[in-house]
Design a protein around this nucleic acid. Structure first.
Lengths: 208, 208
DNA sequence: AATACAAACGGACCCTGGTCCGGTTGTGCC
DNA sequence: GGCACAACCGGACCAGGGTCCGTTTGTATT
């Protein structure tokens, strides 16, 4: 359960006390259960604390906020995805040409976001965790854009690529009858335009 | 103050009672003042109610929620902007070619969003008002895209164009030293790519 | 002017996220 | 094992958003 060192960084200064670790796992476990049976929106911090047999204060010391707790529940799947991007099989992982990687990244990202939508909604953008997650994705997209020799304000273009995948925006899209594959197709089209790739079925673009 | 019929629609079924109207104006007025002197984030509903000499319940009956109240504060500037889009002078208003209109729309939108950033942040995306505001912009963008004969999923492309202008995204951009003009330039570039317009300084794109 | 009724009022009340601090407990060291 | 100290714990407490309902008040009608 405790896949702690998602980002070890500094040489593990103190180290965590045993009871603290136990409590964290208990909290995560309880939270996961409650979210599964009630939906993330209806899970209060107090309920989680009680279910874990722990005081409310402990929740906040461990996770900083309700949103932080929710974000922590996403860690494992997030870490798995990051792992596949960094070292999994192509086309998501390294080895495939950059365009294929970008496309795979987009499609899996759409699926992932929509799959965990309610948790992401409850997690907000607050947690340092979700900031780290965003940074990872942004870094990677930017890297791919560079490999694709895209010119321009890469930071902005990356933002533009990622912004439509923010939960509130996705919610709105889904509200307009867009299902997962359609959103994914839309995103790939967007990526094609942003990278100024010709359409696959386009005649050679000699519209002098 | 009371620019009520922002969206009259049905034939004014009941009509508002005099005291209600008075209270609404008092609340808007008090809210505006408090926001100006403390910043939107530090204004509580109770404070507004008290400043307006009104019970807290009244705030919620009139505006539905704190966010609704904040959104209401944006109405006048929003209405003004919509007016300029619909009937103001070109290039924002009608008369200019669609690309110029789109560019103007983007630039003014960036400026407007950044100008009212704290209020927008406090308004969230909740209020029916802000949904209406979004719909207006989306409609208009989509219309311009159609005039530009852009092909593809116009709803998605519109979303992609507007998503980077959502407050949280803008916040992130500004955090990376992007100032208003730079963001605006970035957006115009994005629009060029999405509409598949050649760069102005590009040689005729004959990269057969 | 008197009457009737829908609409509006207001503030007590509830809920939940977040803070605080006195007491407890694990851990490293002698 | 015993000691000392830092880290941790828990639950009382606070603040602010949102609801509820008994009371008041505007408005239309006669």
């Amino acid at each position: 359960m405790s896949d702690r060192p998602l980002l070890p960084l500094a040489g593990e200064p103190p180290r965590e006390r045993a009871d603290a670790a136990r409590n964290r796992d208990a909290l995560l476990c309880a939270a996961r259960r409650l979210v599964a049976e009630r939906g993330a929106a209806d899970v209060t911090t107090e309920a989680v604390a009680e279910a874990a047999g722990v005081g409310k204060g402990t929740v906040f010391r461990r996770f900083g906020s309700r949103e932080g707790l929710m974000a922590a529940l996403l860690d494992t799947s997030e870490a798995a995805w990051q792992g596949e991007v960094l070292g999994g099989p192509p086309p998501l992982g390294p080895g495939a040409p950059p365009w294929e990687r970008l496309e795979a990244l987009g499609r899996t990202l759409v699926a992932k976001r929509l799959l965990h939508a309610d948790l992401l909604r409850a997690a907000g953008r607050s947690g340092a965790r979700s900031l780290a997650a965003y940074s990872f994705t942004a870094m990677h997209v930017q890297h791919l854009l560079r490999e694709l020799e895209v010119e321009g304000d890469l930071l902005f273009l990356t933002t533009a690529l990622l912004a439509p995948l923010e939960i509130p925006v996705l919610d709105a899209l889904v509200h307009h009858d867009r299902d997962i594959p359609r959103v994914a197709d839309g995103w790939v089209d967007l990526a094609r335009r942003i990278t100024r790739r010709p359409f696959p079925g386009d005649p050679s673009p000699t519209y002098s």
